[in-house]
Design a protein around this nucleic acid. Structure first.
Lengths: 205, 205
DNA sequence: CAGTTTTTCGAACGTGCGGTCGAAAACTAA
DNA sequence: TTAGTTTTCGACCGCACGTTCGAAAAACTG
């Protein structure tokens, strides 16, 4: 798909609008973000936005879709070949953390915005496809890891929830917006996921 | 503070309004919740709501404040005397999970609604006082636990973030709204928090 | 340059919603 | 019953904000 100059410029402007919208969403919250404000940040008149997107909702959806799609794309190509499930899992999470640290506002939006949506709406978004693929991938890794005794021996679903939670907590929680280093993530996951040398409980008295 | 019948009825009506508002917030999301809808659910005319609360915001704040205050009250009286930091910590989290399971919509609101707020606003709420007390309490427990070698030896802040995350993940994450049992929480925390040199806590029956 | 297409935006429209007002209805006390 | 008080709400107001329109400006083309 090759684009001539004009199409390229149009794409650039569309991207600019998305970036501005993201900034406004982030600063004001979804609720208070207005098209006027987005336009102002982008340096356009409000009406011009509608030359590029049908509606505010389309802008919102596009950010989510592109975001999740890109995340998925960049992760699925991530090389885990030859790694143990455990190593693969940890390095994948580290990779995600890297991505997050590269564009924190975007990823906060990707992770949190959906929760602010009405439930019925949350189901429909195209972006869900990519989110689900990511979750499925993680689930597979965890299942493999449990089977090989590299993760705590418990219900996959529980492990996934907990891992998701830990990750979420590490990367996003806290008022301080200090970024967590890769080393810290490594340490945390490494410690918490320490593999069972034997079946838990069994040998101890 | 004794109330006569009228004052009591007034209190009851105020509570009814809060409960209705919570329901609407939950169903429609903060954004789409309207005073008209809240009034309808409560069985009042919209104007009547303003006889009990100054504004929509006051209703919102009251729910958060009462919620966090009650949570704190019910937790601070929770008996941890004589327990090791580790046991105290785990039983406190279990207690919180119990509370959550008793009134899921309320606690989802307490935990998630603040994130949907504009940052500058988030700082101001009175409810923050109680949230902070809870976090401080947890931090103290974790610090003590680390010192006594009952938790992984790492930065307190990291452990708190991770624990918060795990808890968050366990209790809230996932589309399925199935409640997590106490036993599962016990298992998860017990396994992940396993002390360095020793076996996981024995599961009580 | 004129003629055509693409891009921009000021101004206006419609409406949804928070909040108000005044008066009716319901309740109380005598 | 009446006079006073509390509670309720229909109707209205103002405005913020998403969206549209028409036409001006800018960018191309030959």
């Amino acid at each position: 798909m090759s684009l001539n100059r004009k199409e390229l410029e149009r794409e650039t402007r569309k991207k600019l609008i998305l970036a501005s919208a993201l900034k406004v969403f982030k600063d004001l919250g979804l609720e208070r973000a207005t098209m006027d404000e987005i336009a102002k940040v982008a340096g356009f008149g409000k009406a011009t936005l509608y030359y590029y997107y049908h509606s505010k909702e389309e802008i919102f959806n596009t950010i989510l879709l592109e975001g999740w799609k890109n995340m998925w794309t960049s992760l699925k190509e991530f090389d885990v070949a030859g790694k143990s499930p455990r190593k693969a899992f940890i390095s994948l999470l580290k990779r995600i953390a890297e991505l997050v640290n590269e564009d924190r506002p975007l990823f906060e939006f990707l992770f949190f915005a959906p929760k602010a949506l009405p439930a019925e709406y949350r189901e429909k978004g195209e972006w869900r496809v990519y989110q689900n693929r990511l979750y499925d991938l993680l689930t597979l890794m965890i299942e493999a890891g449990i089977k090989e005794g590299q993760f705590p021996q418990m219900d996959t679903r529980l492990v996934l929830k907990a891992m998701g939670g830990i990750f979420h907590g590490l990367v996003f929680l806290g008022d301080d917006r200090d970024t967590i280093t890769e080393a810290e993530i490594e340490e945390m996951l490494g410690t918490l996921l320490r593999k069972d040398k034997q079946a838990p409980v069994a040998h101890e008295k």
